[in-house]
Design a binder for these strands. Structure first.
Length: 328
DNA sequence: AAGGACGTCAACCGCGGTCAG
DNA sequence: TCTGACCGCGGTTGACGTCCT
């Protein structure tokens, strides 16, 4: 059967956009919203495929995108989220609301991936290349736990990204660009705090965590501890065999409201230094780029101990950024 | 100065998911 | 339930700029 082409290819322009094309597209969307991308080019008088128009709009012409150099904070956020989500650029982009997925993808491929590689970290697994296969039992359990958590977090972020997309679509489709509200802040990652709480309390006792969606209420219900779960909140339970950590996440903005209802325990002091590593490597980047391998030794001695805490550093940064950063 | 190598980034391509008919 | 149109995502390509020899 085969898939039909997305649009008539004959007579359509390809390649770089001209200022005239941009002006036509901008003018049309400002007046009518984009509506159906497929029919937009004809209506806007553009000899372009609808997909090309959508891409041009989302990556270049949208009024709410930020261009230019990535800040260190943005770099850290990308690395943290990439560790959790992998190459899910659109999901990552929802946490850097003024950056496009394409820009983040390019930045990762051209800058961050190389920097991690230079640090001796596999940019795919986010593990040190030197001992990726030499975890002790405890370490591999921790890695498995984190992987488990990442899978859940991935699913949640995807749903969240969909919400953001839908809200943006509505605002664009039904109004002029001047009426587009700023992107809503994403859910905080308080789930990670809850997870860390359970993790730190039970590391000596055969930690076997599981994450379970409890229910998705349509009306307020009474929860344990006398707390009332409001309509629209989702309730999740982290089970490690010793204790349950139950927390709720509202499904609407504002969302800095993840609540750990039970089992919130002291979070261990994770090693600071991931930021320093990044900064240090950024500082040395120019030197080494100019041909010097002066910091190769430093990279090679990126120790097992540091690798051990790599994931912890990521979690730590996520934890801190959830309270300190506007990103979370 | 020339041209080859490398880096960057905008844009394209094809696939998978979603949804309406 | 099935089918096909549409949309969005991620991987890839190619043009252009800069660096290196």
């Amino acid at each position: 059967m085969g898939r039909s082409p997305c649009c008539e290819k004959v007579g359509l322009k390809k390649g770089p956009w001209t200022p005239e094309d941009d002006q036509k597209l901008l003018a049309y969307i400002e007046e009518h919203g984009h509506g159906s991308w497929r029919s937009l080019p004809a209506k806007a008088g553009l000899q372009r495929c609808g997909k090309s128009c959508r891409l041009r709009w989302t990556n270049n012409l949208r009024p709410d995108i930020k261009r230019g150099k990535f800040s260190l904070q943005e770099e850290q956020t990308i690395i943290q989220l990439h560790a959790l989500l992998g190459n899910r650029w659109s999901a990552i982009a929802t946490h850097l609301s003024k950056r496009t997925d394409n820009e983040i993808k390019n930045y990762w491929n051209t800058h961050l991936k190389k920097r991690l590689t230079k640090m001796g970290i596999d940019p795919v697994t986010h593990k040190s290349k030197t001992d990726a296969f030499s975890f002790t039992d405890g370490q591999s359990k921790t890695a498995a736990n984190l992987s488990h958590m990442a899978q859940w977090e991935t699913a949640r972020l995807e749903a969240e990204a969909r919400l953001v997309r839908e809200s943006k679509l509505k605002s664009i489709s039904f109004g002029s660009s001047s009426a587009i509200p700023p992107a809503a802040p994403p859910l905080c990652l308080d789930v990670l705090k809850a997870w860390q709480g359970g993790l730190s309390k039970s590391t000596k006792g055969g930690f076997n965590p599981d994450l379970e969606f409890v229910d998705n209420p349509t009306s307020a219900v009474e929860c344990e501890g006398g707390m009332v779960k409001e309509e629209g909140e989702e309730e999740w339970k982290v089970t490690n065999g010793i204790q349950d950590v139950i927390f709720t996440i509202e499904s609407s903005w504002p969302l800095d409201s993840g609540k750990v209802e039970t089992g919130q325990v002291e979070v261990s002091n994770f090693m600071d230094g991931f930021s320093d590593q990044l900064l240090s490597n950024a500082d040395h980047q120019n030197e080494s780029d100019k041909g010097g391998d002066s910091d190769n030794g430093r990279e090679e001695v990126f120790s097992n101990e540091k690798n051990e805490s790599y994931w912890n550093n990521i979690l730590n940064l996520v934890k801190s950024s959830s309270s300190d950063s506007p990103v979370f």
